[in-house]
């Protein structure tokens, strides 16, 4: 059937759809370009970060110390859960002595960093989005610009530096908590001797397991900070707009964390 036979209304709808699609694509690529510049400027300002060391310290406290409880809770619960479930599974194969090995790899490589990334994009990301969004709509960001201060160097770079610094120890602490909660469950739920558990953890852990896990920390730090700050800076349309941009920041950064998690694992494990 050629398009001539289609009713005019349908053609009209297709045309409208096409136009919308093109517009959306344009907006998407424009936003990508803006984001690219925003990120470049945030990185370029890193050498100047010591000028804003107070802001770096404040942000380090917010994304480090203040995030510690939620990161620990998620690490402990994921460690415990893994130990129970994987232990049940391994028992069927009579391989319960391998429990330490399987849980430690999951915790260190995958679930530990991933869960931490998601928690931080909810906690640190939402805070950035809401705070910077509110500053944007109340013209405080314009006020910085009007005073000749680069708002990206003053507001975004300190957050980026703080996240880059703090995400590594957070990862280490989360690994530690996850492993110990797994060990606890192995001992008290599966009645596995702690010696056996830890024996299957340490000798088997390869450097690449740590590389995978710890490489994710800076990658997530960059994704979460830049995406949430960018969305805060783009907020418009009053308080509802701040809400929208905050949500967008969390959704996009969580999505990107999930995707980056996969690719970091794949790249490192294929190449090491």
């Amino acid at each position: 059937m050629s398009t001539q036979h289609l009713p005019a209304r349908a053609l009209e709808l297709i045309r409208i759809f096409q136009e919308k699609l093109i517009l959306e694509l344009k907006v998407f690529f424009f936003t990508m370009q803006e984001f690219f510049w925003f990120s470049t400027r945030a990185f370029v300002a890193i050498p100047k970060a010591k000028r804003y060391w107070r802001d770096v310290l404040d942000q380090a406290k917010i994304c480090g110390a203040d995030s510690l409880p939620i990161v620990m809770v998620s690490a402990i619960s994921i460690g415990a859960l893994l130990a129970i479930e994987v232990g049940n599974l391994l028992e069927d194969f009579g391989a319960k002595t391998m429990l330490g090995r399987s849980t430690s790899i999951s915790v260190i490589r995958e679930l530990g960093p991933l869960l931490m990334g998601l928690m931080l994009s909810a906690r640190f990301g939402s805070r950035n989005g809401a705070e910077l969004g509110a500053m944007q709509i109340s013209e405080q960001i314009d006020a910085l610009r009007a005073f000749g201060t680069d708002p990206i160097a003053k507001l975004v770079t300190p957050r980026l530096v703080a996240a880059l610094i703090m995400f590594l120890p957070l990862t280490a602490l989360s690994d530690f908590a996850g492993l110990h909660s797994a060990a606890y469950m192995a001992e008290h739920y599966h009645r596995l001797d702690p010696g056996i558990f830890w024996n299957s953890v340490y000798p088997r852990l390869a450097p690449r397991d740590f590389v995978v896990g710890f490489l994710k920390a800076p990658v997530f730090a960059i994704i979460i900070t830049l995406v949430s700050c960018f969305n805060g800076f783009s907020a418009k349309g009053g308080t509802a707009g701040v809400g929208r941009s905050t949500i967008k920041g969390i959704v996009v950064s969580s999505g990107l964390v999930l995707i980056a998690n996969f690719f970091v694992s794949k790249l490192v494990l294929e190449n090491m």
Binding site: S138, E139, Q140, D142, A146, F147, G148, D150
Partner: peptide
């Protein structure tokens, strides 16, 4: 970036004050 130097010669009082809260 090159505008910063120009802006520093001027002071601005925003309609909504735009104080750093």
């Amino acid at each position: 970036t090159s505008l910063y130097a120009i802006r520093r010669k001027m002071g601005m009082v925003f309609q909504g004050n735009a104080l750093f809260d």
